[in-house]
Every structure is written in structure tokens, then in C-alpha cells.
Design a protein around this nucleic acid. Sequence first.
DNA 1: ATCAAATGTTAATGCCCGTCAACTTCCGAC
DNA 2: GTCGGAAGTTGACGGGCATTAACATTTGAT
Lengths: 239, 239
Amino acid sequence: MLESLYLNLGQHDAISDAEKALLSGAMTVERSFATGQDIVSSGSRPTYSTLILDGLAARYKVLEDGGRQFTSLQVPGDFVDLHAFLLKTMDHGIVALSPCHVIFADHSKLRAITEQAPHLTRLLWLDTLVDGAIHREWIVAMGRRSKISHLAHLVCELFVRLQVVKHTTDMSFHLPLSQAELADVLGLSIVHMNRVIGALRQSGVVTWSNYTVTILDWHRLQEVAEFDPTYLSMMREPR
Amino acid sequence: MLESLYLNLGQHDAISDAEKALLSGAMTVERSFATGQDIVSSGSRPTYSTLILDGLAARYKVLEDGGRQFTSLQVPGDFVDLHAFLLKTMDHGIVALSPCHVIFADHSKLRAITEQAPHLTRLLWLDTLVDGAIHREWIVAMGRRSKISHLAHLVCELFVRLQVVKHTTDMSFHLPLSQAELADVLGLSIVHMNRVIGALRQSGVVTWSNYTVTILDWHRLQEVAEFDPTYLSMMREPR
DNA sequence: ATCAAATGTTAATGCCCGTCAACTTCCGAC
DNA sequence: GTCGGAAGTTGACGGGCATTAACATTTGAT
């Protein structure tokens, strides 16, 4: 049930059975969300945090002119709003980009973990720190990378993150994002997004159809993206 | 000595004298850095985290073509690399943008805090979560705001953050950033950065000279920026 | 005070990317 | 199968922004 969470946290450091039991014990209700539904709405003050068991979700903000910007993509094994445990008030929304199956962890039980399980606390903290590292990489991509490089970087990131939780097959993964939604990831117009995707296809490093991305040449893709996975902290070491 | 840290952490929730003593006890060596010097270098594995006592610093990444992107600005009372306590390896550098006076906190002592002081641990965790919230706001600004709105938002953010640690006077603050450095914050060319600053000046909401920004019309500035300080979690409540 | 270097400012040119528009393809409902 | 709407694709055009270059101004070093 929580296998993807264990894979996600366990990539950074070993987690004990006792810790798995604590995590499992923090979980309460399961729920499903349809594509397009808000999993958490902006301005709310949730009393639980949401773990994705299956599906793809995204954090987003909407501006007055209607423009939307995604600030992160969340895959199975991710807490979409672990930060709300301490931030209290959601300053952004979280939407399901595909049918999402989730499970809730009560903040009271997360708090109990911080009182009694320092190592597990550090791993949960670390999970939010990796979030931050991904945000920084997105800022760099938006500010200083070419658009095709930005897109290539996103493909690299998603492939690696999905691989950790065993949601890739060979060099392919499912990416249920319309081009309009991708445009809200990269901060582009729909039309230009379409052209950038076309350019990446043309370059021959990936195929991309039916919402499935297949990496044909990982090495060249990594070069185009200048992708260095250090920021994902995938090395297992004492934390 | 650690007054700005107490102000920074204390804005989110009350901190006890015992907690202040724990923080104080975690500090070791003080040091100064000159403008332009790296406080922490990319790829390093520091065994301590760095707190800014005075000065302005920034996190940054450099791309192969030499392009630089700042991913955050750090003011007095900020830990510039608290995340390295758990991430272990720095995936970016941190540079002093003005003469910086800092103090180091040993990771071993931070670890001891996580073992013995759950509430203080949550406040330190929260500090890194606010970092993440700021990152998200930067992503939105880079992706979907006009450049003048982005700049206005940055001014709002810095003013509020500096106010918390008592580094503003009336509606002014010192911002020791060249236009070239600002361009690396917004992801613009130097020439265009100059024009955007000119446009913000023209609009009459701020004056900006001698590295000092004065807000003439906070209300209109906030409107231009669509600035909503919720993301900074400045409300004091149990965490 | 003088000079060199860093920083700020302005103009010219061209490309990247947004907008508008038209059209095609895909997909689910019936 | 047929229909309607969503998603994808392509072209035309204009504006925002990068690049280059030149010059002005400020700053710091001697």
C-alpha cells in the first residue's frame, strides 16, 4: 500500500520496520480524485497531509489575469502538501492531473512522529528539502535555460523520479499532461509549447505520443538538459 | 548576537529561552566574507550550516554557457544552507552580495536538537519550508508575471522580510545589488533589466538610487506585484 | 587629484515567443 | 457510426527581450 512512499523516503536513507509502522499508523482515510479536481484548495488550512498512492498531481497558483503556473509535479510516493503540516495555510492549490488515488496522514500523528521519532522526522523534513531543491532547479530552468533545454530537463527529472517509485518501463513513462498544461509548467503559450515539443521530437532524443514519453538517447537528452541528478539526493546515506 | 535569528524564527511561533539557549549553543565560529566571495561552494559537503548575522547573500547556479541564475536572496537571520544539514551535498553555491558577517552551526549540534527538542526542530524545519514557499513564488513570477510585476514582487518580498529582522527604515531598505546581479535574479539581460527598473521608477511607486529602495506607494506597489504575503507565514501560531 | 575599472544608460537590430486565427485530429457520448 | 468538444498543429504578425555597441557616470585605487 505505502510501497511508493517507502521507496521514495528509502532512496535517501534506510528506514526501519518500526518507522514504516509509524508511517502506516499515521494514515487514515483513502480517497480518489478525478482529473481536474482540486485535491487541496488554495487558502485552506488542512488538518492532514496527502500522500499520492497513484496518479499525477501538481501544485499551482493562478494570477488575476487568469494565468496559471504550476510550481511542481507530484508523483506516487510524494506528499503533495507535507509543508502544510507546519505552514498551516495553503498559499496555492493542488490539482489532480490524472485520476489520483491518495491517502491522508493526520497532522496530529505527524506531530507525534516529530515528538518521538527523530530519524523519521529528519527523513520527512528531507522530503520537503528535496522539494525545495527541485524548485531551485525549476527557477534555473525558467531563468537561464533555452526552452528546449528546460523541457529536456523536465523529462530527465520526471524519468528519474518515476524510476525511483517503479513507474517507468524501460526508457518510457506515462505523462498524462496536455500541451496546455505543459505550457503552464514551463511558463509558455500553448502555441510555443507545441513548437518546443516539436523541436525536442525533431532532435531525435525522445518520442512523445499518446501521453507516453520514450527516451531514445539518454546521454544526448542529458546533454541538452545539462541534467545533473545531484539535487535529487538519491544517494543512500545516514541522515 | 542571534537577535535576527530569534526574530526570524519567532515570527512564526513563540520560542522559549531554553530554545534560544539551544540555538546559541549550536553556534561555533564566526566569520566574515567579502563581497563576491563564496560562502559555500557548489559540490561541497559542509559539516555546519551558516547563519547570516549581517549582510546579503544569494544561492546560485551557473550553466555551461556561463549564465548564472540566483535562486534565492538571503538576509540577516537566514540560514543560507540549513538544507545541507540533511541534503548533505551542496548542489549550488552561495555567494556574498555584500560584506557578510556569519556564524556557523555544527550539524552534530543541529542533529542533537532534532533528537531532543521537537518544537525547535519543527521551527527549523518550518524555516526551510518558508524557503520553499518563496521559491514557488519566484517560479510563478518567472513564468507568468510581467517583468515589471516580477520586480515589484521582489521589492515587496524583500521589504517585508527585512522588516521582520528590523533592517528597514520607514519605507526604505538597502539593496546592494548591481543591475547585472538583479538580472541574474529575474533571468533577464542586463540591458533589459535596466529598462524594467526604469519602468518601475517611472511608474512612481518607488525611488531607487544609491542601492537604496524607497517605497513611495505601498498600496500601488502591492497591486502591480499582486503581492500577497500569506506565503511568508508571518502569522504567529502553534507549530 | 587622476586614472582605470565597474556600473549604469541609451540606441539599433534581430530573434524568440505571445496572440490571433484557421484547420486538423483525436476521443468520448450517444 | 455520427457528432461535438477537446487537444494538437500550423501560419501570420507584432511585441518583448537578447545582443551588440557606444557612451556616460560612478567608484575605487594610487
